[in-house]
Amino acid sequence: MLNAFKKLRPQLFPTLFLFLVFFFLYLPIIILLVFSFNTREFPAPWEGFSLKWYYELFHTPEIWVAFFNSCIVGIASTFICLTLAVFMIYFLASGGKIGKFIPIFYGNLIIPETVLAVGLLSYFSLMHIPLGLLTIIVAHTLVGLGFTIPILYIRYRELDPKIFEASQTLGASHKQTFTKISLPLMTPALIATGLVTFILSFDDFILAYFTSGSSLTLSLYLLSSIRYGISPIINALASILLIITCTLVFLFFSLKTKTRIL
């Protein structure tokens, strides 16, 4: 029996460690979820199972306006980032060399978001650009670009260059090589990075905080409601957002093997 325990031992510490860390990571989330189903409002202890907070959630229009705004911002910034990335791919597929310029995108992820936000804020005020969803979108594209451009460039370079040469020798023009070969081969990576960009945008707080003007994204709405204290409606919202996150992560995972981003 001692032998069996000895066999377990090398696995004991890692398992314990993993368990503790994940417990730490998930504790608040699970508690949130659990109490979203409570009949009574917190801090009352657990009373019974109820969906009434979800009902309330769906009847609070401000939340859904903010949610909708966040979606718009996320989709728009992702769309812009991916379009710019596709331009880059087209350039590369036609023989362009852009490698030297990739490092200029590294700064987007390195700089603290606060500094970037302040910079954009003063820029927008100088240019007399009104703050609103558009400015948030612009801010988010920067973060997105810092992520998509270097990764997609690396991914493109990992492709066998002979494939494009084969396409050329078989008679395909640059445009045809791009549409038939480059783009299809890059699609999984495009989708994966697009997903990440969307999530980064949807979850973002700092940039929106500075550049939103009077518009509200979901993060900003949540901030203001925190200031009012705990509300079970937020719990309900949390569980819905969690489901959405799970779906997106799941989508990303199904692409993971094709893209080798992680």
């Binding site: 990571l25 998930y26 608040p28 989330i29 508690i31 949130l32 109490f35 917190f42 999530i199 949807f202 979850d203 973002d204 707080f205 979901l218 993060s219 949540l222 901030l223 925190i226 705990i230 937020i234 719990n235 949390a238 957002l241 969690l242 996150t245 997106l248 992560v249």
Partner: peptide, 15 residues
């Protein structure tokens, strides 16, 4: 947790 909303996390720990 990494891809869950930032403020939501704070709210959770607040809770």
């Amino acid at each position: 947790p990494f891809w869950t909303n930032f403020i939501l996390h704070i709210y959770a720990w607040f809770f």
